[in-house]
Design a protein around this nucleic acid. Structure first.
Lengths: 185, 185
DNA sequence: TACGTCATGTAACCGGTTACATGATTCA
DNA sequence: TGAATCATGTAACCGGTTACATGACGTA
């Protein structure tokens, strides 16, 4: 029994945010949803086609000046209803995120403490970069003129990213510290 | 160009923790690695077979009293080397974890604030349960006699889970609070 | 005899990425 | 003429789950 296909709803939702082409959807995902959802063209275009087939969206060929033609998709009423129904449906179990660093740490008695520390420091560095990305997106949303109603929710998702990333960074620092303390004994 | 196949290394690593059968590996994963890695039998058994084919492990049929026969796998020296090499290899980019709650929140202007709050509360409840699971595993590791060298690292991974979960729970509470404040204006 | 645990395995399916193909338009 | 951006699309592949099949052994 399958349950998810949340990607379909991600696209359904993005069609309400001013994105109406596969290309625009992809850009939006890479810019703003990147920290909790990502989709490739290999999914986007077939899904859009499917939405039309299911009567959840309509297409329309549009020619532009100075740019190639594009296909614009718009939600139908049925599509909007589908989105709202999904929004209210209870969430499934929290997905297990695969964490390569934790997996390595789990088996780290097989390597030197120094090697483990290097891994943790590298991880912290990456988390740090992520954190700054969140900051940058946050500034973009607050300064550029987006739909104000959407913006509040988008900032919430960024806050989530910042908080959990900050917690992970602290953990990194503390764990490195603890391993270093072993050495001194 | 593929990169990962970390699952192979997860199994390689688990063979050093006292697990020597596919069944035991599965149990270990469900009990202790569940929050950052999970593997189904559909991957375990074929992978074990592959490890032997690649000379990274050996098999041996063992009959037990009072239990069915089993196949015991042991790392070869080549297998141990493979594990150590992987441990020291730099981590790839941090994987994007798909978060259904954040996805819904992102589009939540399409539903009532009350519905959004319900979702967030349900999420917080699930995080809460996860937190208690971490606590339980932590107690198990500290009380039962495990390899002490392994135990320290295992506790680090649990600490990570607890800290990031705690941060997420706080975010939930604060976000609900903010949405409720809107109503009062 | 039926249930629970221990134990091994695989075929079908599915969500998703990667790599590739194509082509319009603009600008340096 | 060649690079950058805008734009659409798909076939091959892959990691992984699900559902199913099988069976030994102990215990109620």
């Amino acid at each position: 029994m399958k349950q998810t296909n949340n990607t379909k709803f991600a696209i359904l939702g993005l069609l309400t945010t001013g994105c109406h082409t596969g290309y625009a959807i992809k850009q939006m995902i890479d810019q703003s949803l990147n920290h909790f959802w990502k989709i490739s063209y290999g999914q986007i275009y077939p899904t859009l086609k499917q939405l039309v087939a299911d009567g959840l969206a309509t297409v329309q060929d549009t020619s532009q000046e100075g740019k190639p033609d594009k296909k614009e998709y718009f939600l139908t009423e049925k599509g909007e209803m589908e989105l709202r129904t999904w929004l209210q449906a209870p969430i499934n179990a929290i997905a297990t995120e695969k964490n390569e660093v934790l997996l390595k740490l789990f088996f780290s008695r097989h390597q030197s403490n120094q090697s483990t520390i290097i891994q943790l420091e590298q991880y912290r560095q990456k988390l740090h970069e992520h954190y700054h990305t969140y900051d940058a997106i946050e500034k973009m949303i607050t300064t550029e003129l987006f739909n104000k109603e959407d913006a509040a929710f988008w900032l919430f998702t960024l806050d989530y990213g910042k908080r959990t990333t900050a917690a992970a960074m602290e953990w990194c620092a503390d764990t490195v510290q603890q391993i270093q303390n072993w050495e001194e004994e």
